[in-house]
Design a binder for these strands. Structure first.
Length: 338
DNA sequence: AGTCTCAGTCCCAATGTCGC
DNA sequence: GCGACATTGGGACTGAGACT
């Protein structure tokens, strides 16, 4: 036993892999039919290198066998058929499959120990465990991301921005986007997302807001629990999001709901730190700066504080104090929503 | 042919500015 | 005082080229 069997690793992100698999014509998906890289490339209309990368990924998962001529394995066959129509079922197949693949278990074990892994850490783990000679840090990340995205897909964790987390990010520090938009804009976004969600390009066009800007605003809506982000570039309303823009509730009910979600969100941490009286843009700005642990310019503080104050005023959590500058917390409203 | 690397593009978060 | 838009920098993503 001088040379171990060649070990393959997923190269493509699972999202990309699935997109390509959906494109494969049914007649090619079979345990008996052989296909070449060239043939597959023509069949799905992408370059041969892309297909080569797909093939390496599928091999790494045990979904296809062969050299130069390939054919689907039984499980690969099943997965490819399911991914076209029944994604949840396909996930189960993939999950079961990776339970029997060594390197997935190695990474999974490390993930369970540490709670989260960056894609570079995963890459390094493979290099040391499997004697890979990857030199470029980007290559480490590419393979790391391939594995991390699969973990996210099958439900072993939550993959986002180069980090796979065992636990959901929600509620953790750092996962609280700065208040970035007014309540009014929040509702415009929610209405634009109704009823079945939208991709960021469409949304940007419909709302006339730059994509960059919009993605930040959506992050806020997400933190408040109104919007979900099932995959890259696509956003949809959560049940809460649908409820709060329902035409069947009054504006008063809308406010009440808004308070409940605001107080139930991570932004509660900010509300807790607010002074009881003399709430002004300036004082909120300072609270924000300390909660986020940042050093901001006065202007930046003011920008965010204004938005947050807008939420507080919209919801009725604060009331103006007569004859004085600033607002005070409406304790009764707050406590009735604890 | 198959594996790895490169570089352009896209996405995102943070910060800054404009106009009413 | 307020809401909307712009700029910047960094990192992930991706298709295709380079290398073995």
């Amino acid at each position: 036993m001088n040379k171990a069997k060649r070990e393959y690793f997923p190269y493509l992100r699972v999202g990309k892999m699935n997109v390509l698999l959906k494109e494969i014509p049914l007649q090619l998906v079979s345990e008996v039919n052989e296909f070449s890289a060239q043939g597959l490339a023509e069949a799905i209309g992408v370059s041969v290198t892309t297909v080569s990368n797909l093939i390496a990924t599928l091999k790494s998962l045990g979904f296809i066998d062969g050299e130069r001529k390939f054919r689907f394995t039984a499980v690969g066959d099943r997965y490819t058929l399911l991914i076209k129509t029944e994604e949840e079922e396909a996930k189960k197949v993939l999950q079961h499959q990776i339970e029997n693949i060594g390197y997935f278990q190695v990474v999974k074990q490390r993930l369970d120990e540490k709670g989260k892994l960056t894609i570079s850490e995963i890459g390094n783990l493979l290099v040391t465990q499997y004697n890979k000679r990857w030199k470029n840090p980007l290559t480490l990340k590419a393979y790391g991301a391939g594995i991390a995205s699969i973990f996210g897909f099958v439900g072993y964790g939550y993959y986002r921005r180069g980090v796979i987390n065992v636990k959901k990010l929600e509620g953790e520090e750092g996962a609280m986007p700065v208040p970035y938009l007014s309540a009014d804009k929040i509702f415009r976004i929610l209405n634009a997302l109704a009823p079945s969600g939208a991709d960021i390009h469409t949304l940007s066009r419909d709302l006339g807001t730059q994509k960059r800007r919009l993605s930040q605003e959506l992050a806020c809506c997400q933190a408040l629990g109104f919007v979900g982000h099932p995959h890259r570039g696509f956003y949809e309303l959560t049940e809460s999001g649908k409820a709060i823009i329902s035409p069947y509730i009054s504006d008063d009910e809308r406010r009440t709901k808004f308070i409940r979600y605001l107080v139930g969100s991570r932004y509660k941490r900010i509300i807790d730190k607010l002074p009881e009286a003399k709430i002004t843009v300036k004082s909120i700005g300072n609270v924000l700066e300390s909660v986020y642990g940042k050093k901001w310019s006065e202007l930046t503080k003011k920008t965010y504080a204004k938005k947050f104050l807008n939420w507080l005023r919209f919801s009725g959590l604060v009331a103006r104090v007569k004859g004085e500058k600033g607002y005070k917390l409406n304790e009764s409203v707050l406590s009735s929503n604890k």
